[in-house]
Every structure is written in structure tokens, then in C-alpha cells.
């Protein structure tokens, strides 16, 4: 039982990493960032490229992949979302979907349709007892998530940048009128969110040992569920909800009568929660 719980938490970490980036964008701009999943895949591919061609080190490929995703994320905002901000809400949604379709095709054309193996060697902690196993990759994921969230928490709550960011999420115009460079804040927001998505992509590629063009699709749907459960715009909410969702899925999936695929279970849980708490579990 403990083992199942632990495996679920590791899975939850990946959901949380994806959902946080998505939620940061939502909190600031109120757009559903469908193309976020493209950055996840991008991170994995860039990381893989690094690993195969530049260096054998996982850490370097993790860094380069996250950096690349961050840059592309900001570009994506400048090119796709920033002209669409004044338009109705469905416009960025569709534009994001278009970019997501195009990105999947781009990865397929550049790297071929086959899955690649993500064969990185690295040293890390692991626990191996007869009753409990945490592999190196699992440990790495948990550590990464904890560190990332601590950094993010400090950044938001203890720094000036965080203060400005919080001001922008409250009221963009008011923040702008009090001298905050909102373009910079949005860009940084996209950078952090995209870097998290990119590193999530690399970590999952490592965990599953596969990189393929459509790997982003499933995770992106999951991330939607997570941000609803966690409350739109709430970062700790997304982190907690990601882990709760993974646990719920894993345990409900073990119940024989609950014979539905994971996605359906996740969305069923989401709709039920929305019926009773229309603002999400941790929403304001």
C-alpha cells in the first residue's frame, strides 16, 4: 500500500510541475494555455538532443532543456498570446490549440515519428528495501519538485519581484499604473512556467525512458484537471491537487468495479468537485 502511495506521489509531482506553470499563466492573464504541453515535449526533445550530442550529463541536459523551453515560452507569449489578449477568451484558446497541433507535427518532422529512449546515467539517492523501493529517478523527481516549489514560494512571498507578480495577479491595470513593468512580469511568469514544464518533460522522459511527438497530449489534459481542483491561479493549490489527483487515480484504478480509464476518473472527480465547489478545492 505504501509503495502504491509512493509511486502515486511521484506521478503527482509530474502533474504538479505541469499544472503550476499552467496556473501561473492563468493567474496572470486568465487564458487557458493549451500550448503549455508543447513546451513539455520541447523540453524533452531538447534535453535528449543535449544528452546525445553535447554532454552525457543529465544535469546539463536538464538545464538546457528548461532554458530552451523558457525562451520558447516567452516567444510564444510575444507572438501568439500578446496580440490576442484583448480578443475574446476563446481566441487564445484556439490559437494555443493551433500551436500545439503544429508543434507535434514539427517534432515529428524533425525527429521522426518513433519514440526515443532517454538513456541518461546519473548518481542519486535511492531506497531499496524489500518493502519499499524508491528508485533514483523517483527520488530525483521528488527532490526536484520540492526544491522547485520552495524556490518558487520564496520568490513569490519574499522578494520584490514576487510582490510585483502578486500585484499583477490582483489587478493588472492598477499594477501598471503604480509603475510596475507588467510586460516584464508577464515575460518572467512565462519563463518560469515554461522552464518548469520543460524540466517536467525531461524528468518524465527519464522516468518513462521515452520521448515521442505526442507525449504532451495526455499530460496537458491532466494539468487542466489539476488546476481546476487546485483552484484557478493558486500555486500551492496546484501542487497539492496534483498529488491528490495522482493518489486518487491510482487507488480508484485498483478498485475492480471502478472500471474506467484514468482520464475519465480524473475528469469525473473534477466535475463532481465543481458541482459542490464551483471555484475548485483551494480556489478563492
Amino acid at each position: 500500500m505504501l509503495q502504491v502511495l509512493l509511486d502515486a506521489i511521484v506521478l503527482g509531482c509530474s502533474y504538479a510541475l505541469m499544472a503550476v506553470g499552467l496556473n501561473m499563466v492563468y493567474g496572470l492573464l486568465r487564458i487557458i494555455h493549451v500550448a503549455h504541453a508543447a513546451l513539455y515535449t520541447l523540453g524533452a526533445y531538447v534535453g535528449l538532443y543535449c544528452l546525445l550530442n553535447l554532454s552525457q550529463s543529465l544535469w546539463i541536459s536538464l538545464f538546457v532543456g528548461a532554458l530552451f523551453s523558457a525562451i520558447v515560452g516567452v516567444l510564444m507569449y510575444r507572438i501568439i498570446y500578446s496580440p490576442a489578449l484583448t480578443a475574446p477568451r476563446y481566441v487564445p484558446l484556439i490559437a494555443g490549440a493551433g500551436v500545439f497541433i503544429a508543434s507535434q507535427e514539427l517534432f515529428r518532422l524533425l525527429a521522426g515519428p518513433y519514440p526515443y529512449s532517454f538513456d541518461a546515467h546519473f548518481q542519486f539517492l535511492s531506497i531499496m528495501t524489500p518493502n519499499l523501493r524508491v528508485t533514483e529517478t523517483q527520488m530525483l523527481m521528488i527532490t526536484f519538485m520540492v526544491v522547485a516549489f520552495l524556490c518558487l514560494f520564496i520568490l513569490i512571498n519574499k522578494t520584490n519581484l514576487g510582490l510585483m507578480w502578486r500585484a499583477c495577479t490582483q489587478d493588472m491595470e492598477l499594477a501598471a499604473s503604480s509603475g510596475i513593468n507588467i510586460n516584464l512580469i508577464i515575460a518572467i511568469n512565462f519563463m518560469i512556467g515554461s522552464a518548469l514544464a520543460g524540466s517536467a518533460g525531461i524528468l518524465m522522459a527519464l522516468y518513462r525512458n521515452s520521448v515521442f511527438p505526442t507525449m504532451g497530449a495526455m499530460v496537458s489534459y491532466k494539468a487542466f484537471v489539476v488546476i481546476v481542483l487546485g483552484g484557478f491561479g493558486s500555486i500551492p493549490g496546484a501542487a497539492i491537487a496534483g498529488i491528490i489527483l495522482a493518489i486518487a487515480e491510482s487507488f480508484l484504478g485498483m478498485v475492480p468495479i471502478f472500471n474506467l480509464p484514468r482520464e475519465a476518473i480524473a475528469f469525473l472527480v473534477m466535475i463532481l468537485v465543481l458541482m459542490f465547489k464551483p471555484k475548485g478545492l483551494f480556489g478563492r
Binding site: N259, A264, I271
Partner: peptide, 25 residues
């Protein structure tokens, strides 16, 4: 009737997956 805007968008996505799951299982 309960949810609107973006929550409704996500609810409809959910309906899609649930209907697909039911027909598949």
C-alpha cells in the same frame, strides 16, 4: 447552471473524456 466561463470549458472537456471512457469500457 453551476459553473461558467473557463470552468465550463474544462467541464465540457471532461464530458468528452467521460463519454469516451464509458463507450470504451
Amino acid at each position: 447552471l453551476r459553473v461558467s466561463d473557463d470552468f465550463l470549458v474544462l467541464t465540457t472537456i471532461g464530458l468528452n473524456f467521460i463519454v469516451m471512457g464509458i463507450t470504451e469500457y
